[in-house]
Write a protein that binds this DNA or RNA. Structure first.
Lengths: 219, 219
DNA sequence: CTAGTAATCAATTATTCGCTTGAATACTAG
DNA sequence: CTAGTATTCAAGCGAATAATTGATTACTAG
């Protein structure tokens, strides 16, 4: 009778529980950029390989990611774009109802975020007019796995020394891993310092892709 | 630096962890019908009062519900409609990626679900044409807290004895607490047995309300 | 066949979580 | 002021979780 509901709720709980750990959210954040091997994920997140492996298995058991072995490595990937949506919903209600978020965001971002970010729709419009340089500041590994069509890859850590690659007469819109990814904040701040007109894209690459907009990958 | 991201992820994890327990999902399911006191929730879920209270405080700490004292009782309510959306996203990706769900649903519902459910849009269309009786089979307590405008309340357990209240010449669309709430399945099965033309609304009252459609409450 | 690499498994320990129990608090009605 | 009701608090215990460590499996390159 009501037994069915509880069996289903148990499944929902397993999925929610899988999302209930910082390290697993972190792993999902990286996987949302593109597939990766265990070793790469462990290095990106700073976890030991064994620990990362266990967390990844947890996520797989919950159905949030899938894996397949190719050659020596096991590659993990998000089970689907809807997982990005679920993470977005989690972020959204947390932002909305947890006061702590405001405090954290205000403390670290506000100084930089004074100029409002650009939405996806706006980026599309402005880039159709051809007046804008779209800048991807993620590491090139992630850029190669997938990026916004026409974007220029210039990882944050190389930004200083490769500044001359950027046209100074065009507006620059920077993006990275997601709405709270610090890379694009830093990039915009640095670019403004150098006299560029720079803005941040409101969200990151995973949200762009999940919304069904076209993407481009380097072979 | 990347410290900010982890502080934020910790907040997301707290919210996800709050969703990661059957009893708390159950409590949210009832709260999605309307506000309730601790005692009522404990009775509805079958938990001890102390246990229910602790789970509710957990949910409140996570920001998913709010509470206020009125008279002797403490009433809890969802923090916002977006919580229904988050639960929907959780349900959606679980359905999509966890094979176990298919098994459970197939085993219990398939026999009954042979006839496809009606969507919200369809219900609106048909009820505008005035050819349909909308039936709310939840307990009257929940009906009174809020229901679809024009719906008739006939709790499942009274259905047999109050069958004569239903016009036999109109199609009946039944709904209850949510997509997996068994009440409406049972009701449709029972009504068909008696010769009525009955269908199930695809989702329940919380989803209806969260989508911004008008609702009605009994004073 | 051997060495080396990538990942998982298994065992251990510290920590957190969930539930029960009984006491404590807060309030209301009389 | 007292009795009764609704809820929370606090302590305690067993179960589940997370991280570490070292061993093991599976595969590839030479």
């Amino acid at each position: 009778m009501t037994d069915v509901k509880h069996q289903l709720f148990e499944q929902f709980a397993i999925v929610a529980k899988a999302l209930g750990h910082v390290h697993r959210l972190d792993l999902l954040d990286y996987l949302a950029q593109g597939e990766r091997g265990v070793d790469g994920l462990a290095r990106a997140t700073g976890l030991s390989v064994a620990n990362a492996s266990q967390h990844l298995q947890n996520l797989r058991r919950a159905g949030l990611i899938t894996s397949q072995k190719r050659g020596l490595q096991v590659f993990y990937q998000l089970a689907g774009e809807d997982v990005v949506g679920l993470l977005g919903a989690l972020r959204h209600t947390t932002e909305r109802h947890v006061a702590e978020v405001d405090r954290i965001v205000a403390g670290y971002f506000n100084a930089r975020d004074s100029l409002e970010p650009v939405s996806r729709a706006e980026l599309l419009k402005r880039s159709h007019e051809g007046l804008v340089t779209v800048l991807d500041v993620r590491p090139s590994e992630e850029f190669q796995a997938g990026h916004i069509p026409g974007a220029v890859n210039l990882p944050l850590k190389d930004l200083e020394k490769r500044l001359k690659d950027l046209p100074k007469d065009q507006e620059i819109i920077a993006y990275c891993r997601g709405p709270y990814c610090v890379l694009s904040f830093e990039a915009v701040a640095a670019l403004r310092n150098k006299g560029y007109t720079a803005h941040r894209l409101e969200e990151g690459y995973p949200e762009w892709r999940a919304s069904g907009l076209p993407v481009e990958a380097t072979k």
